[in-house]
Amino acid sequence: MKGVDEKEYLAPGHRACAGCGATIAARLALKALGENTIAVSATGCLEVITTPYPETAWEIPWIHVAFENASAVASGVEGALKAQGKEDTNIVVFGGDGGTTDIGMQSLSGAMERGQNIIYICYDNEAYMNTGIQRSSSTPYGASTTTSPAGKESFGEDKFKKNMAAIMVAHGVPYVATACISHPQDLMAKVKKAAETPGPAYIHVLQPCATGWGYSPDKTVKLGKLAVDTHMWLLYEAVNGQIEVTVKPSQKLPVEEYLKAQKRFRHLDEEHIEIIQKFVDGQSKQFGLTE
């Protein structure tokens, strides 16, 4: 394919669920980065499914240590590469939303603040999927998870998701972007830009998860497109803090179309859907997508 690295850096045979969005994110990101890359994983789905000893899906050097410290591990790798005079090698970190926005927040903040030359990719499926769909700070408003279940007295998660991209921009990270697996060219272009940027880069990738969100595995990409087309997930980049939207959906669909396609939102009544719609409308306005 034109402009796309034809090599596979994440081999098949890995143990991801059928229709896994995380592996789409990783596979595309690695194609954008190429073979001169070292990957660091936080504990999570991607780590577990790709390295069942004595096998590995990784075709490039890869290291995993624990859940919360991938950014610190990457900092050490960067130090070693500098010492070896291999500064041109990309260091990419893959952390899930739990490993990034919750338990990995401190080490990520440290690495970004120090200006470590690493590309951090958060593959966000909006809950702790590896441990069984528990709520994270990236779980969206209204989602039912195993620790924020909908019930007689509960409509599921009662907070809006943490805005990680904004937090990264506030760190002074020179390249910050959001992406979605449904928009592969946009995602790969952003990963390439991240690699070209000296210093740290952060990309927050939304990746639908059939198991955790409750939809049929063939709809993973469709859900991503719906997230973008309803403006539930905005695609933009912030270069030195200057925000620019990279994908402007031709039409803005009501959030209900996105919500009703997933079991995790199925319990929501009109009132809560309206709250989400208002929140999304505010965001669209803020980013100049609507008047």
Binding site: M1, V4, E6, E8, L10, A11, P12, G13, H14, A16, A18, G19, C20, G21, T23, I24, R27, L28, I181, P184, A210, S216, P217, D218, K219, T220, V221, K222
Partner: peptide, 28 residues
């Protein structure tokens, strides 16, 4: 591009050794 298992060849043939049958390719 969308195959989660990277098992569709550039001739657009699925590699049945690895294809988990998720159906994303057919859907998209």
């Amino acid at each position: 591009l969308y195959c989660p298992d990277g098992c569709i060849t550039l001739e657009y043939d699925p590699d049945y050794d690895y294809c988990k049958g998720c159906g994303i390719c057919a859907e998209e």
